[in-house]
């Protein structure tokens, strides 16, 4: 059972899903919680709350700067659970956290899974944890009934794509292009190939496409072949530029891509 995959499945009939990322503690914890809630009210179907980390090698400049600010403003890992609890109580959308691995390792993966689950989170995305290193995490998330999302990329072999499918719960994160987070004008055609590989290796897996998605057109196109489009940097950028109002407008604009 996965709340996240249930939502993605249910939305397929109406044009697909928009998965939205926002970093916790940016620019403050209060403002990030309100921003996340506003995103769900404006059309985000699945929420990703980013846990700031000192060495985010998968993130482009926009998210790096946001999470650096969050850390400089005093973000503490333990505040994550209270923030998740509040957001989850205020929205219908499943709430995932996105976290690099070392904070989880230091907190203790079992304890992290337990507290996340108790706070009402649906699961976690771990960009620098590959299934090969995840035996303990798979066990912990199973015990606490959490989704766990691994990545499939354009260079993943069939065997590795199969491992991403069989290890993930909720959905498989299809990396659209070889690169880090950040809005791009043209999405690599490779996204389609990755989704096709996921479909063939894991016929029962849900899969959403991320990295570089920033327009309603891209959201529509992705939802024509995948189960959801993931947007991060474009939302953070909107918030940086015009606060919560511009963020809401950007979400609403991209959510239009879900209509058939």
């Amino acid at each position: 059972m996965s709340r996240t995959s249930d939502v993605l499945k249910a939305n397929k009939a109406t044009g697909g899903s928009l998965i939205g990322y926002f970093p916790l503690g940016f620019p403050s914890m209060r403002e990030s919680i309100d921003a996340a809630v506003a995103m769900c009210e404006s059309g985000v179907d699945v929420l990703e709350l980013g846990i700031p980390y000192s060495d985010p090698v998968m993130d482009g400049l926009v998210i790096q700067q946001a999470t650096e600010l969050s850390l400089a403003n005093g973000f503490k890992l333990k505040d994550t659970f209270e923030a998740v609890r509040e957001v989850a109580s205020r929205v219908q959308a499943p709430v995932l956290v996105m976290t690099y691995w070392n904070p989880v390792m230091q907190f203790g993966q079992e304890r992290f899974a337990k507290e996340l689950s108790e706070a009402g989170a649906a699961g976690a995305i771990t960009p620098d944890l590959i299934p090969d290193e995840a035996a303990g995490w798979i066990k912990a998330t199973d015990e606490h009934n959490l989704d766990r999302v691994f990545l499939a990329t354009p260079t993943s072999s069939a065997t590795r794509t199969e491992a991403a499918c069989s290890s993930s719960k909720g959905f498989v994160y299809a990396v659209s292009t070889m690169g880090i987070t950040g809005a791009r004008e043209d999405l690599d055609q490779k996204a389609k190939q990755v989704v096709a590989a996921v479909r063939s290796q894991g016929p029962d897996s849900m899969t959403a496409v991320g990295i570089g998605v920033s327009t309603a057109k891209q959201v529509r196109e992705i939802n024509s072949y995948a189960d959801g489009a993931i947007v991060g940097s474009a939302f953070v950028k909107a918030y940086q530029h015009g606060g919560i109002e511009e963020l809401k407008a950007k979400v609403a604009e991209l959510a239009k891509g879900k209509s058939k």
Binding site: V57, D128, L129, I130, E133, L151, V175
Partner: peptide, 12 residues
């Protein structure tokens, strides 16, 4: 040791 990197780098 091990490999704690994004899947994008595993093939390389």
């Amino acid at each position: 040791g091990g490999r704690f990197v994004p899947e994008s780098l595993i093939a390389a």
